[in-house]
Amino acid sequence: MEQIVNFKAILFPSDGRQPTMVPLMTSLMSIPAHHASYTHSPSRMPHPEVHMDYIAEGLGPRAWKYHLVEALDGMNRKFAAPYIIFYPVVSRDGMPFPVNKAIQEIQGSAFIESVAWRGNIVVAKYRENPFTSMIDASMADFPILKNYLLTHGCPGH
């Protein structure tokens, strides 16, 4: 069985470059046998840290967090394929990550530094469960993500 699977994700670089498509590597997660089932896909650990500059090394998923976007404000139904936004939280040197200039530009006059997205942001897409059913994102998802990021700061501030 294949151990590493890549999904297409969107990278919002912190240095202000335009968002681009990147491969988001995932690997099988070891889960206890009582969770295993023939009817469920195995859980996969995403590795967005590969695309995150200045992130602490050796911490794996403890160096980043994620936020689920299941609908836009005002929608009365959830997305059939929601988004998962990965953002760095532990830097190599303990300093804050730089403000993400690509997202700051999207937010324009709505930008608020105290809730700014920082570091490189990786956005993936999934169905049902973000760790068992990731799917490829595309640049066609960009307008929806732009709309979300326009009005939402980074969670956890």
Score class of each variant (00 low, 15 high):
M1K: 07
Q3N: 12
F7N: 04
I10K: 02
L11T: 00
L11I: 02
L11R: 06
P13M: 09
G16W: 15
G16N: 11
R17Q: 11
P19E: 15
P19G: 02
M21K: 03
L28P: 01
M29H: 01
P32V: 13
H34I: 10
H34N: 09
A36H: 15
S37V: 06
T39A: 11
T39I: 12
S41I: 00
S43M: 15
R44E: 02
H47P: 00
P48E: 14
E49Q: 12
V50D: 15
V50P: 01
H51R: 02
H51A: 04
M52E: 12
Y54K: 08
E57M: 10
G58L: 14
G58A: 09
L59H: 10
G60M: 08
W64K: 00
W64R: 01
Y66E: 07
L68H: 10
V69M: 11
V69Y: 12
V69G: 02
E70P: 00
E70N: 12
L72I: 06
R77G: 00
A81G: 00
P82I: 03
P82K: 01
Y83K: 01
F86N: 04
V90M: 09
V90R: 05
G94L: 02
M95R: 05
M95A: 11
P96G: 07
F97N: 03
F97V: 06
P98A: 02
Q104W: 03
S109V: 09
F111D: 01
F111M: 02
F111L: 04
S114R: 13
S114L: 06
A116T: 12
A116C: 08
W117N: 06
W117V: 07
R118N: 07
R118E: 07
G119M: 14
N120K: 05
V123F: 12
K125F: 08
R127C: 10
R127E: 13
E128F: 14
E128W: 15
N129F: 15
P130G: 05
F131H: 10
F131G: 00
M134G: 08
M134C: 10
A140E: 15
D141F: 09
I144T: 12
T151V: 10
C154S: 15
C154P: 11
P155H: 14
G156F: 14
